[in-house]
Amino acid sequence: MKIRGIQDKFWLVISLFLFVLIVGFFLSFLVGRYPIAPKTVFDIVVSNFYETQHYWDQNIETVVMEIRLPRVLLAILVGGALSLSGASYQALFKNPMVSPDILGVSSGAGFGAAVAMLYRWQWWQIQAAALVFGLIAVGMACAIAYFYARQEITVLILAGLVTSSLFQALLAIVKTLADTDNVLPSITFWLMGGLGRASNSDVLLMLPASSISFALLFWFRNHIDVLSAGEDEARTMGINVPFVKSIVILCSTMMTVAAVSISGIIGWVGLIIPHIARLMVGAKYSRIASSSFLLGGVFLLLIDNSIRHSGGVELPLGVLCTLVGTPIFAFQLSQARRSWM
């Protein structure tokens, strides 16, 4: 009899992730073009809660509180949210190959952002357009699946593919129309993803979107597990399948669309992180969800830190994630063919 000791390992793994995340969070404040001593960073953060003596330059405080803080927080939240929504979609579709943009959210958001840039709207309007069109794309995919086959989960995947392609075609048209000197480069850069313009107001969007989704998904964690037995079987086990499905789609969409509107398109995180999590903590959704969130946060934070550390030209985050993510994924395939059935 093979016992893998998954249960006992879970709390170890989750504590490890949490520890790395917390340490990573603090160390990340030291990374950047502008060298700031650890003690100064600490004192600046503390000064926001207690009256202390300001011995530092105001510019340094701005760098810490308005540039580094939101960027670090958003790297964690975006990475966590994308991984959690990937894990949720993988559970819903009973398929480990599914990523958060399976229902077309990224393509929709990309189109929305591109249109906003075409009209030279402001940054917040670009974000809003990405958000709205991301939601429209998912809405369309769900509507198509609902009207043509209420029961079939495969139809939902196909519908996502259809809307994705539609918005990619529309995006291509926008790119053709765009001014090649200014607008086209900014569209291209946005599509490659990045947190270069992270601000504290973005945190105010990302934090509630991910915490509400996390709470809701966690509330239905056991129901989501039962979906893995098949939809008909889940129904006969007393699960309100359409309702649980809607919860998963709603929460995952909410998180992904918020993440994409802030950071542009960041691929692979939502696909590989749940995989690694599954290998480490087993199949139960509650475990995969919590460990994916933490690990995704750590992963994106590390990649974003390396971008900030390198200085000079800021490499696009989404591209770097793919660059790092693909070899990890390939390595995993060779390692654990059996476990991702």
């Binding site: 893995s228 008909d232 007393g238």
Partner: peptide, 22 residues
């Protein structure tokens, strides 16, 4: 569904469980 499940259980043919559950 929930009430129905308290009365009747189903063992389907070729039932699958996705993912490596214990």
């Amino acid at each position: 569904e929930r009430k129905k499940a308290a009365h009747m259980a189903y063992v389907s043919q070729s039932s699958k469980v996705s993912f490596p559950y214990e």
